[in-house]
């Protein structure tokens, strides 16, 4: 299996889907001539031309709305947000227009659109550029929220997202773009709404997504050295949430820690915890714990930033707590 970067896996997915379906076009800031702020769209302008790889002014609300309008009349836009921090300007279009069109039109008008770009913190980008907003979008009925953690997942999920008839918020990771992984050759898709067990284990289930998958896997490795067997579940899709995989695992391990990059309050993990306690209360041997970003705007200082992020040590501490070790 060839090894690709996450960035190139996304690029392949875009390329293949644009080759496959003329209705698919890519729009956003710097996607064309500049080749993408993070080079995800490298080479696409050359292959598909300016009709289908459309550079926009810095006007997130505007081009998100353009995407919704184009999707309403049959195109399949992929709208790139340079980062999801900037997508805040487009939230009205995503929430009030994209997510609701099908419902308020009684099923007459759908919005098959992907809004994609990096989310969460990178390194020392400060408060306004280091935010994980998946819980915001996941809160909205009508939206799907997808967050791949590996190159293979990135490709398979983006292809499925583009083919999906619903608005899909597809959140990548700036820190993930350079990560490498094996990506199957040829045509393949990964269905939305299906979590993936990234590591099998028996003592505790660690639920995570996106960048925190690497955090959880690292923690699991260190826990294994202490004789603790952790199962790592990558949600991959936040909405619809694959509750089955999570519940099946926690029913086996009886203990769970949910890790996410975003803030604690009303985060994705809160939904996971709710599901677990509601569905398999009797399987729990300990309260489900959550490891999240600190409840602060992201500081610039490197040490402070490190403190604010979920890391393997925090995950390990939580795991030991639910196992009543220590």
């Amino acid at each position: 299996m060839p090894t690709l970067t996450y960035r190139d896996a996304l690029n392949q997915a875009l390329r293949e889907e644009m080759q496959r379906d003329d209705r698919v076009f890519l729009m956003g800031e710097e996607v064309g001539v500049y080749q993408g702020a993070y080079k995800v769209s490298r080479g696409l302008l050359e292959e598909f031309g300016a009709r289908r790889v459309v550079d926009t002014p810095i006007t997130e609300l505007g081009f998100a709305g353009v995407g919704v309008g184009a999707a309403m009349v049959g195109l399949r836009p992929v709208i790139e947000m340079m980062t999801f921090n900037f997508a805040l300007l487009a939230v009205d279009q995503i929430v009030n227009s994209a997510a609701k069109m099908r419902y308020m039109s009684n099923g007459q008008v759908g919005v098959p659109m992907v809004v994609r770009g990096p989310g969460g913190a990178a390194l020392q980008l400060g408060a306004q550029h280091s935010q994980a907003f998946e819980s915001w979008y996941a809160h909205i009925p009508g939206l799907k929220v997808v967050m791949p953690a590996t190159p293979a997942d990135a490709k398979g999920l983006l292809k499925s997202a583009i083919r999906d008839d619903n608005p899909v918020i597809f959140i990548e990771g700036e820190m993930l773009y350079n990560t490498k992984g094996e990506v199957p050759e040829g045509e393949y898709t990964i269905p939305l709404g299906v979590a993936d067990i990234k590591r099998e284990g028996t003592d505790v289930t660690i639920v995570c997504h996106s960048k925190t998958v690497a955090v959880a896997l690292k923690a699991a490795e260190q826990l294994a050295a202490d004789g603790i067997s952790a199962e790592v579940i990558d949600l991959r899709t936040i909405r619809p949430l694959d509750t089955g995989t999570v519940l099946e695992s926690v029913a086996r391990t009886h203990r769970c820690v949910v890790v996410e990059e975003g803030w604690h309050f009303a985060g994705v993990g809160a939904q996971v915890v709710d599901t677990i306690q509601r569905e398999i209360f009797d399987a729990l041997d300990a309260p489900v714990l959550r490891v999240t970003g600190a409840e602060v705007p992201m500081p610039y200082n490197k040490q402070l930033e490190k403190l604010a992020k979920a890391d393997p040590a925090k995950v390990i501490a939580a795991v030991r707590q639910v196992l009543y070790v220590d």
Binding site: L61, G62, F63, A64, G65, V66, G67, V68, G69, A70, A71, M72, V73, L75, P77, D92, Q93, N96, S97
Partner: peptide
Amino acid sequence: GHIPLTTGMAF
């Protein structure tokens, strides 16, 4: 909010 939608339809 719907004005950009029209731009999108025209697009």
